[in-house]
């Protein structure tokens, strides 16, 4: 009888990733409401002993390859934080065990004794609440900051070592940390960082480039640099980067308008962005009427501070 809720614990050199810690922190509460026991799977000894402070049962998979062992037989629920690894692993586990899978959830709770999740649909144009088919394993990943991280409650769980099943047919030949940032067309960015006249010179776009690189590293997503018509006309940036009515229309998940006043020309090009952040020194700039978050200030001070904040967060 499956009676456990497993948390997949991702770690970086023994350090538990923050999103995994958030899920670990919520695991006991959710497991309790479902009448399950919280447990964890880790691939690193240090991470396993840290996880054992949150839950009573920890499987330490040794020699884990790209795709570790199948779902434990006693798993009723598997939770993980959203990550590229989770996107590979979770659907795999769910399919192999005929389970229910929902990834990248923005809320997860127990209602009337069963799990209920929320996530965006239709490219963010709508959001849905989802139920799971009963009597099957449920495999779910949740995004960062859906749950709050908390200090371990001080249990000391048992750690069971288990050898991972070897992944077949896949061999990583090289892994290059210093690989160049993946730059994509402005229409393809998951995040677009766009600059305007408020950056004061073409050279100052370096601060935007740095922010873009930092965001690419932090999120693993595709990040593009964009520009307002004014700076394209001034030949600070190439036409390919122009966002707006006579340039390109963009629909990123997150859009930064930096030193862009917000002419309707520009607004028409960003109408489909999900979240818009405006940074401008003029508190009356029209861009603030079309943004979700705003900082009034000099872009050349705010952007380096933002880059630092993302690096240290």
């Amino acid at each position: 009888m499956p009676d456990k809720l497993y948390v997949i614990v991702e770690s970086n050199g023994g350090e538990i990733r923050s999103v995994s810690r958030e899920v670990l922190s919520a695991a006991r509460g959710i497991a309790g409401e479902l009448g399950l026991t919280a447990a964890a799977v880790a691939t690193n000894a240090d991470a396993a002993s840290e996880a054992a402070k949150y839950v009573t049962h920890v499987v330490h998979l040794t020699n884990a390859g790209l795709i570790p062992t199948p779902l434990p037989e006693d798993a009723a629920v598997v939770l993980a934080g959203s990550s590229p690894l989770a996107r590979d692993l979770l659907p795999y586990l769910a399919a192999a065990s005929a389970g229910c899978y929902l990834g990248d959830c923005t809320a997860l709770r127990v209602e009337a004794g069963v799990l209920v999740a929320e996530r965006p649909m239709l490219g963010g144009k709508a959001a849905g609440t989802f139920a799971f088919e009963p009597d099957r394993p449920i495999v779910v990943s949740v995004r960062a900051h859906v749950f709050a991280a908390s200090d371990p409650p001080g249990v000391s769980g048992e750690i069971i070592e288990q050898a991972a099943v070897e992944s077949k047919g896949i061999e990583v030949l090289s892994s290059d940390r210093a690989a160049e940032d993946r730059r994509v067309d402005v229409t393809e960015g998951d995040i677009v960082v766009a600059g305007g006249r408020g950056l004061k010179s073409a050279d100052n776009f370096a601060v935007l480039e740095e922010l873009a690189g930092t965001l690419a590293n932090a999120t693993g997503g595709a990040v593009a640099v964009g520009a307002s018509r004014a700076v394209v006309d001034a030949k600070w940036r190439p036409y390919e980067e122009q966002v707006g009515k006579s340039g390109k229309s963009v629909a990123p998940k997150l859009y930064f308008a930096v030193g862009i006043s917000g002419q309707i020309h520009h607004i028409l090009g960003i109408d489909r962005a999900q979240v818009v952040v405006a940074i401008n020194s003029d508190p009356d700039a029209p861009i603030f009427k079309y943004a979700d978050y705003g900082i009034v200030g000099d872009a050349l001070q705010v952007i380096p501070a933002l880059t630092e904040a993302i690096k240290s967060a």
């Binding site: 707006g244 009515k245 006579s246 020309h265």
Partner: peptide
Amino acid sequence: GNAFAQEYP
């Protein structure tokens, strides 16, 4: 007035 500006098609 924006119709008078070359910025708009």
